[in-house]
């Protein structure tokens, strides 16, 4: 029984490291800053989660610390990349040529329109 859990855990750890590698590859290969942030954050969050979950199956006594670590990563990782991307947008780092829509610009204008409608 314990043996099967160990094998599943090892496979999960391997899968997690594959995702971490893909995230690192995305940091090098993507065309502009926003795509790089997206690749790095999404892939590395999933990779870290899979690694920690595999570790949880291999060594079940550490569940408390591992769950705490997962919660912390779940809160901090997306928030920090969100702040980075927002700051980069405010100091007007250019988008790549293939971009279709810049929703943050549009969102601010629609917000204003909505508030005006509400005020009336």
């Amino acid at each position: 029984m314990g043996n099967i859990l160990e094998i599943i855990g090892a496979v999960l750890v391997l899968l997690g490291s594959v995702f971490l590698f893909l995230g690192a590859l995305g940091l090098v290969r993507m065309p502009d800053l926003y795509n790089r942030i997206q690749a790095g954050t999404k892939a590395s969050t999933l990779g870290t989660f899979l690694t920690l979950f595999g570790l949880l199956l291999i060594i079940p006594e550490w569940w408390g610390k591992l769950v705490l670590l997962m919660t912390f990563i779940l809160i901090t990782n997306p928030v920090s990349s969100h702040v980075l991307a927002r700051a980069a947008h405010y100091i007007k780092i250019p988008l790549t040529d293939k971009t279709v829509a810049d929703l943050l610009n549009k969102e601010e204008t629609t917000y204003k329109v909505n508030e005006e409608i509400k005020n009336e």
């Binding site: 809160i75 901090t76 969100h82 702040v83 927002r86």
Partner: peptide, 18 residues
Amino acid sequence: LRSTSEILDTASRILVPV
């Protein structure tokens, strides 16, 4: 001051006491 985003505000309220 530029207004901070709501995501950052909520996350910092949770994280700072921890």
